[in-house]
Structures are given as C-alpha cells and as structure tokens.
C-alpha cells in the first residue's frame, strides 16, 4: 500500500490508432499516453470524433496500434482476451439465444475460468449483485434497456477481469435510469474495487464516475489534460467547478460563471 512508485496496471504509451473506411484511412488518436493504476476509475472524456471508443477497442485488443504500445501488467496487448472485458453501449451485446444466467455462465465457461457448480455459483452471485436474481431465467428481449446493461456489467464483473472496459454503457438509457445506473456502478466499485476504464462524452457522468479524467480533443484524438475528481464537482482554487473547467479546456472557451454541474 505504501509503495512510493507503484507500477501502473495499464500503460498506454504514445498510442496512434488508425482505421480504414471505404475510401480513406482515418487517424483516430495521435500519440496518446496515460497510465491506469489498480482500482482506478479512469474516465476517457471527449466529444464525438476524438477516438475514445477506438482507443478502448485498442485496449480490448480488437485494433492494432500503428505506433506506440499498450501494456497490461507488463504484458503487451495483441488480441482480445478475457482479462479485459468490454461492456458495450449497444443493448444487443447479450446473446439473445441465452437467458440472463446463461449469458453470464457462457462467459465464465467459454473462457475456461470456471465450470460446473463453481461457475453457476459465481454467475448467481454477480446476478444478485446487480439485483436481477428474479430475472435470471428470462431471455434478454424480455428485459428493459437498463436491465440489459446490468446483465452485461454482471457478465463482465463475474469474469473478475484485471480491468473492466466500459464503452459509454449508459449512453442509450433514459436520464432517470442513467443516474440510477451510475449510482449502482459506484456501489459495485465500493464492494469490489474493480479497475474501470470508462469512456463517455458526458461531462457530468465523467465527474461523477471517475477519480481520474483524461480529456481528449477531436480530429484526431490527442490528450489535452488529465484531472482528478472527487465525484462531487467541487469548486477548485481558480474559482471554477470541475465541470466548468473541463468545459473550458475541451472547447477552448473563456471560462465563465456558466455552470452545468448536474447530471
């Protein structure tokens, strides 16, 4: 606990990412570096087109870097794997041919983590953690959007991965459900202290969820700042709330008394 120079769990160094569209090669991020430590709630925040989702997919191992490196606990990331579980924005990330319990079980069994009784117990444990025990035998199409995302989170957490990657998991939810889900995620983190890498385009969500926030500017994505957050949008020494400071940094606006500190 008192290591003066703790090693980062996830080290991203000078990362440049490109992807191909039909008629061009797009640079999504350019020489982005950051470190995530164990039990961080690390948020990547930026407007559309800043390559934040691409960045997350690269950490997931779906995209090869053009330049730079990504290492998880010292090992180079080269392909998707169950040590980095992704929770997507889309509701269709659950397999419709499996019930809630089977979806969670499938992840544990397919990856070879656990099998038989142990897998079933672990699955039920995490389904209970997201308050879905009563729906364990339902198929995904019978659930609401928020419930589907809870299943996806349970599936990810049941894997007990080294890092949980979340790609705007609450963006497709209505505002009331989103607020509730953010609260539940923080509660889950309190209980498990799982390392989170969370991508969002919402400043209030970033301030609420993160303990560290990386700001990316668009076209291509470059790191603009990395800030700490206590989750309560406090007023800093410059007289601005954290969200107002983020707003002015991201959009190069003159900081005003404009306050949009609610989510």
């Amino acid at each position: 606990m008192t290591d003066p120079n703790p090693k980062p769990l996830l080290a991203v160094d000078g990362l440049t990412l490109q992807y191909r569209t039909r008629d061009s090669i797009v640079t999504a991020t350019y020489r982005v570096s950051f470190d995530v430590f164990t039990s961080d709630r690390y948020v990547i925040l930026g407007p559309s087109g800043c390559g934040k989702s691409t960045l997350l997919k690269a950490v997931g191992g779906y995209i090869r870097p053009v330049e730079g490196s990504i290492t998880l606990a010292g090992a180079q990331i080269s392909k998707p794997g169950p040590d980095r579980v992704l929770v997507f924005q889309e509701f269709d990330q659950l397999l419709p041919w499996k019930t809630v319990r089977e979806n969670v079980l499938f992840a544990l069994v397919a990856s070879g983590r656990l099998k038989g009784r142990e897998a079933a117990e672990r699955a039920d444990h995490y389904i209970a953690k997201v308050n879905l025990t009563g729906f364990a035998d339902s198929y995904p199409h019978m659930l609401s959007g928020g419930m589907k995302q809870r299943v996806a989170i349970a599936r990810g957490m049941a894997m007990e991965p080294q890092i949980l990657l979340m790609d705007e998991p609450f963006a497709a939810l209505d505002a009331l459900t989103r607020g509730k889900m953010q609260e539940e995620l923080l509660q889950l983190w309190d209980e498990t202290k799982v390392t989170l890498l969370f991508v969002t385009h919402s400043i209030p969500e970033a301030v609420r969820i993160g303990n560290r926030i990386l700001l990316l500017t668009p076209h291509p994505g470059r790191a603009k700042a990395e800030l700490g957050s206590t989750g309560t949008d406090l007023v800093g020494p410059d007289g601005l709330t954290l969200s107002a400071r983020i707003d002015s940094l991201l959009f190069d606006r003159h900081p005003t008394a404009r306050s949009n500190a609610h989510g």
Partner: peptide, 10 residues
C-alpha cells in the same frame, strides 16, 4: 457486437 463478445471471452 456479438462477434466481439465471442472474441472477448476467448
């Protein structure tokens, strides 16, 4: 998304 989920769990 289903494809990525399949790859994710190895």
């Amino acid at each position: 998304t289903w494809r990525m989920v399949g790859q994710n769990y190895g």
